[in-house]
């Protein structure tokens, strides 16, 4: 689990695209017309600022057909943790998702895939038992059907409210990926802003191919925690996609508009 990242993310997207006609860019302050912004996949035309988008939108952008997998499970409150039940409820309301991930089968171009997309609006995309279980199941499906697995990461890390059970989801998902790897089924990990903590320290980092959107916050510890620990300012661009690419931890940085064509290129490579 790694801490709140809100203060560390700059520029911090204060909200997702609302239903109003106009929107102020968090990057440059420009007033943007909503419809135009949607056409541009929620990227500011002026400054290339990436608005955070929902798991559903990623599925829309990346796939041609999608069948949602209903696992019929929902988060419990095994620790009886302060305010957790309320947080789950408001997470559902805010995101429209049942938990911090949606999974399913999809077609991308001519390729059949198993796909999961994390939902940051649901408790910061945090990974509890349900997220871990859903990821395990979709990986197992990919293995069984021998279809590539794609995951869009967006998460602050393990879900504190489920304590140690959340931490164990790292082992659960990584074990499933080990099996997927042995079955020689490809896994493509797509990292978006932010992917940190226990999610980054497990399945998000384990792709056969790991790509990221530009300028996403990616790392293990949250910047605030690091700053507190080392008691000095962090370098410019620290823990951003470009930083990770430079240090050898990403295969590529891919613009949102290019994600689908890039995915098809990768899938073509594996499937031909």
């Amino acid at each position: 689990m790694w801490f709140k990242t809100k203060k560390g993310i700059k520029p911090a997207p204060k909200r997702e695209v609302p239903n109003g006609l106009w929107l102020k860019c968090n990057g440059c302050g420009e007033i943007l017309y909503n419809k135009e912004l949607a056409k541009n996949l929620w990227i500011c035309e002026k400054c290339n600022y990436y608005f955070r988008i929902s798991s559903k939108k990623y599925i829309e952008i990346l796939t041609d057909e999608f069948t949602l997998k209903e696992d019929l499970i929902e988060s419990d409150d095994p620790l009886e943790f302060k305010d957790y039940t309320e947080k789950l409820k408001s997470g559902k309301e805010r995101s429209g998702a049942k938990d911090a991930i949606i999974t399913g089968e999809a077609k991308i171009g001519k390729h059949r895939v198993a796909i999961g997309a994390m939902e940051f609006k649901f408790m910061g995309g945090s990974m509890g038992s349900v997220v871990g279980e859903k990821i395990k199941r979709i990986i197992n499906l990919a293995e069984k059907e021998h279809i590539p697995f794609i995951l869009v990461g967006a998460s602050g890390g393990a879900r504190m409210q489920e304590g140690i059970l959340s931490l164990m989801q790292m082992a659960k998902t990584s074990g499933a990926l080990a099996r997927l790897g042995e079955a020689k089924v490809p896994y493509i990990s797509i990292l978006t802003n932010p992917t940190t903590g226990g999610v980054m320290a497990s399945y998000a980092s384990l792709g056969d191919i790991v790509i990221a959107e530009p300028n996403a916050l990616l790392g293990f510890a949250g910047p605030r925690v690091i700053k507190q620990t080392i008691k000095q300012d962090l370098p410019e661009g620290f823990q951003r996609s470009e930083f990770l690419l430079e240090h050898g931890f990403l295969d590529a940085i891919v613009e949102r508009k290019e994600l689908k064509t890039t995915l098809i290129k990768i899938l073509d490579f594996f499937n031909s």
Binding site: S205, G219, A221, I226, I230, H247
Partner: peptide
């Protein structure tokens, strides 16, 4: 949690 640890891929090392 430090700069060097992140530069050298703390998350990736743990995940692997």
């Amino acid at each position: 949690p430090g700069i060097g640890a992140e530069e050298r891929g703390q998350a990736q090392a743990i995940a692997e």
